[in-house]
Design a protein around this nucleic acid. Structure first.
Ligand SMILES: NC(=O)c1ccc[n+]([C@@H]2O[C@H](COP(=O)([O-])OP(=O)(O)OC[C@H]3O[C@@H](n4cnc5c(N)ncnc54)[C@H](O)[C@@H]3O)[C@@H](O)[C@H]2O)c1
Ligand SMILES: NC(=O)c1ccc[n+]([C@@H]2O[C@H](COP(=O)([O-])OP(=O)(O)OC[C@H]3O[C@@H](n4cnc5c(N)ncnc54)[C@H](O)[C@@H]3O)[C@@H](O)[C@H]2O)c1
Lengths: 217, 217
DNA sequence: CCTAACTTGTGAAGTTGTTCACAATTTAAA
DNA sequence: TTTAAATTGTGAACAACTTCACAAGTTAGG
C-alpha cells in the first residue's frame, strides 16, 4: 500500500523491520559488527532472501561478501520506521490498561512521550498519574491540537471507543492505537492499529480445537 | 498451514472468523435473522467473496437467495474457533499487565477462566487477586499439569519470558499468549501469539514518517 | 406456476507476497 | 596478484491469498 521510490511496502515488511531493529540491538550487545542476511533470518525464522528483499525496498545497506554493519543498519532502520525521534502521545481512558501504560518505562525510553491523559470520570479528572494531569475528555479535540499530539492511544470501554476515535480524527491526529475489542472506523488517511487480546486468544483456541485435524486429507 | 478436510486455512482467515463472530453478535442485537455476505463484507471493509470463501472452508452455512442465518452462523463459528467451551488459563507475572488482566471481566465472560496465577516475587506469592492465590513460579510445571491448564498468559519482563515459556512448553501446554516485547521460541506444535505494543506503535510511526512518500513514483 | 431478483459456493483468474537463483562484489588467503 | 569463499541485490519463478464471475439454488410477487 505504502510506496517509497515507486515500490509497494507491505505491512508484513514493516512488521519485520521492527523485528530486525530489536534483533540488531541484541547483536550489538553481543558484540557483532556485521551480520549476514542468513544470520538475521535464522534468528527470526525467516529466509535470507526475505531479509534482503525487505531491506532492499529502502536502499542498499550491505556489503557483498561481508553482510550488514550492525550499528549502522540499526540506525537506518530506526530512521525508516521513524523511531529516531520523540513522539507526542496522548492517552484516552485511564483505567486498568491506561494505568499500566502510563507506568510502563520502556514506552518512554522508546521515545513515546505521554503528554496528555483524558478521561470522562469526574473522580479521575484533575488527578495525576506519574506527574501527568488527567483532563476532561470534553476538551480532547482542542488540547490535542494545542499540544501537537501525533499519536493517540485509546483505552476506553468498547462502547465509547468510536466516539473518542471520531474526535481524535476531527482533531487531525493521523495515528491511533486502540485497545478496545470493537471494530473501529477511520478515514483512509488515518492509520489505526488495534491490540485485540480476545482475537489473539481465539487464534489459540482455534489451534487447540483444530490441531487434531491438521493435515487430514 | 492448518488443514480441515484437505484445505489450508490461513491465519488471516482465522482472524476474520473472530471479526465475523463479533459482528454477528451486533447483528443479533440489532434483530437481524439473516445476513448476506455483502452486508457482512460492508461492515468489515471486506469483499463479499472473501466472506463466502472464508466460511466455505468450514462448510455450507448459507441459503442461496437469502444469506446466512445470524444466530446459527454465530454458533457455528464459535464451534470452529473453539469458544463454545470454557478454557483453563494460567497467568504468569502479576504486575501491571497481569493485574489489568485479572480484573478484566470480559475475559471471564468469553469463557477464559484464570485458574492459577504465578510470580517469583516473594511479596506477591501467597497474596490473592480477585480471589485467586498467587503461587511461586517454581511450581509452575507441576501445577499446570495438575490443574489441566490449556492456555498460559505470560506477563513477565522480557528477560524472564523465554525461561517461563520453556517451562510452560515442558509442562505440555500448547497455547501461549505473551506480552513480552521479545522474540520467543517454541516448538512447532505449540501456538504462540504475542501482543507487542511496541511493534504496533512502530507501524504507526512508520506511516506517519512515510506518508509524504506514498505513491511517489 | 412462472419469472425476476437475490445470494451462495466455488473454480478460475488476478494480485500480492515469498523464495529462488545468479551476476556482481568484497574479503582473505595463498 | 590470483583464486576461492562468502554474501548482497534483484529479476524471475513460485506460492499464497483475494477477487471475479457464474452456475445453481431460493424467494417473492404476479
Ligand atoms: N483490562 C484488560 O486487561 C483489558 C484487556 C484487553 C482489552 N481491554 C480493553 O481495553 C479497554 C480499557 O480497558 P480497562 O480494563 O482499562 O477499562 P477500565 O474500565 O478500567 O478503564 C476505562 C477508562 O475509560 C474511561 N472512559 C470511559 N468512557 C470514556 C470516554 N467516553 N472518554 C474518556 N474516558 C472514558 C473510564 O472512566 C475509565 O477510566 C477496554 O476497551 C477493554 O475492553 C482491557
Ligand atoms: N505495562 C505495560 O503497559 C506494558 C505494555 C506493553 C508490554 N508490556 C510487557 O508486559 C510484560 C509485563 O509488564 P508489566 O508492566 O506488567 O511488568 P511488571 O514489572 O509490572 O510485572 C512483571 C511481573 O512479573 C514478575 N516476574 C518477574 N520475573 C518472573 C519470573 N521469572 N517468573 C514469574 N514472575 C516473574 C514480577 O515479579 C512482576 O510481578 C513485560 O514484558 C512488559 O514489557 C507491558
Amino acid at each position: 500500500m505504502v510506496r517509497i521510490t515507486g515500490k509497494r511496502i507491505s505491512e508484513s515488511t514493516i512488521h519485520r523491520l521492527s523485528l530486525y531493529y530489536r534483533l540488531l540491538k541484541v547483536l550489538q550487545d553481543e558484540g557483532y559488527e556485521t551480520v549476514s542476511s542468513k544470520d538475521l533470518a535464522d534468528r527470526e525464522k525467516l529466509t535470507p532472501a526475505q531479509v534482503r528483499k525487505d531491506l532492499s525496498f529502502f536502499g542498499q545497506f550491505g556489503t557483498r561478501g561481508l553482510g550488514y554493519p550492525v550499528t549502522e543498519l540499526r540506525q537506518q532502520i530506526a530512521e525508516i520506521i521513524g523511531i529516531n525521534k520523540k513522539w507526542n502521545v496522548a492517552l484516552v481512558g485511564i483505567g486498568n490498561v491506561g494505568s499500566a501504560l502510563v507506568s510502563y518505562k520502556e514506552f518512554q525510553k522508546q521515545g513515546f512521550h505521554i503528554k496528555l491523559i483524558f478521561d470522562n470520570d469526574q473522580r479521575k479528572i484533575g488527578s495525576f498519574h506519574k506527574g501527568i494531569e488527567v483532563h476532561d475528555v470534553v476538551n480532547l479535540r482542542q488540547m490535542l491540537n494545542k499540544y501537537n499530539i501525533e499519536i493517540v492511544i485509546v483505552a476506553v470501554p468498547g462502547a465509547a471507543a468510536q466516539g473518542v476515535v471520531n474526535e481524535v480524527v476531527a482533531a487531525g491526529v493521523n495515528a491511533i492505537l486502540s485497545f478496545a475489542p470493537t471494530n473501529l472506523r477511520v478515514p483512509s488517511h488515518v492509520t489505526l492499529r488495534s491490540e485485540n487480546m480476545a482475537i489473539e486468544m481465539e487464534h489459540l483456541t482455534f489451534h487447540l480445537t483444530n490441531e487434531n485435524l491438521y493435515y487430514t486429507a
